[in-house]
Design a protein around this nucleic acid. Structure first.
Lengths: 188, 188
DNA sequence: CATTAGATCGAACGTTCGTGCTTTTATATA
DNA sequence: TATATAAAAGCACGAACGTTCGATCTAATG
């Protein structure tokens, strides 16, 4: 009888789930194979065998984070109609997702880390970010917003700002500030 | 004849000037003593002797970046009267300073890097950030802004957002977006 | 039961890092 | 110019990193 999920992929998924959280704290470079293996109580080499290189592990971690983002932010908003309603849902969930990683927003941490390191890792982060901002912009346009690209930028800034301020000061108020500011920007 | 500046402090300042730029690219952890020494064409041990430890080098680098910030952002704005005029000048220069480091805003890079690493380095970054936001807030209050703390947060977010987006996409437009958004928030 | 492929492990490698110790060089003063 | 002091260099270390490799374990197949 063939098992539904093979042992290998199961382990791989467990590794990546932990890797996303660890990278949100330590960054994708600080995400060391030894530490990751220790936390999962397996050997460095056993873990390493699932990925050909550290860079492959980093790319797989980014893909896993993107999947998590899709599940928690994008998919639920697809229930709502295009335009203003979906845009509002996307923005709200976007702000909320920064607290679904143990070290604050995965994307804030990794994009700051790789904004000056050319290579496949940076390319992957950029591609996902552009796709996300493109979706925000598209919904804004459908909603009849005057400057959709600028609105997408402002939402992005407020979410990143709230994440950064909260991480540094612990003040939960900043999420309220960000929420209010976004609300002011959205079409009624 | 006593020289105006001793050789030692002169070298130290040259090191720190380069360290600020390097840290804006590689982060304060990626700022390695070997690389810094190589760029300045001196030996690791010779450079190291100026600081007792890597952490001391990091703290000195932060202090040097703070001095640069004061010179380029704060000091010029002190020419203007308290309140709205000075607030506007501070905001404009705050946005502009992100391009005075070779790797984008030093503070964006380092605060993202240390937001989850307790210790003196993180403490120093936080203290300087709080002082800066406090100054923005104070000027906003004098200018009669209704929610000074929220305004300071929004300016901070827009500047950090523009820095991040520009670093990742190369689109200079984002600075225009940020400038417009800030302008909308300031008292006329 | 014997075979085999995939998953995991333990040990070791070459490299890079921060750091300490000793020596040499440069600089300022008498 | 000679001397004392500060600055820089040379060299080596221990630790941690990514990576490799051969061995061991597990589980399904004939």
């Amino acid at each position: 009888m063939t098992p539904v999920t093979e042992k290998g992929t199961e382990t791989r998924e467990a590794i990546l789930d932990r890797a996303v959280d660890l990278a949100s704290v330590e960054g994708l470079e600080g995400l060391t194979i030894g530490r990751l293996a220790a936390e999962l109580q397996m050997s460095k080499s056993g873990l390493f065998a699932h990925f050909g290189s550290k860079q492959d592990l980093q790319l797989a971690t980014i893909a896993a984070a993107a999947a998590r983002f899709k599940t928690t932010v994008v998919d639920p908003a697809l229930e709502l109609p295009d335009g203003a309603p979906r845009l509002r849902a996307l923005a709200e969930r976007y702000l909320a997702q920064v607290n679904t990683y143990s070290g604050g927003c995965f994307w804030a941490a990794t994009s700051a880390e790789y904004d000056d390191r050319p290579g496949p890792v940076r390319d992957a982060i950029i591609a996902l970010l552009e796709a996300w901002l493109g979706e925000l912009e598209r919904q804004a346009r459908i909603a009849g917003v005057e400057h959709p690209e600028r609105l997408a930028f402002e939402i992005y800034s407020l979410v990143m700002g709230a994440n950064a301020r909260y991480r540094l000061s612990g003040e939960e108020r900043v999420f309220e500030y960000a929420r209010e500011a976004v609300e002011r920007l959205l079409p009624s």
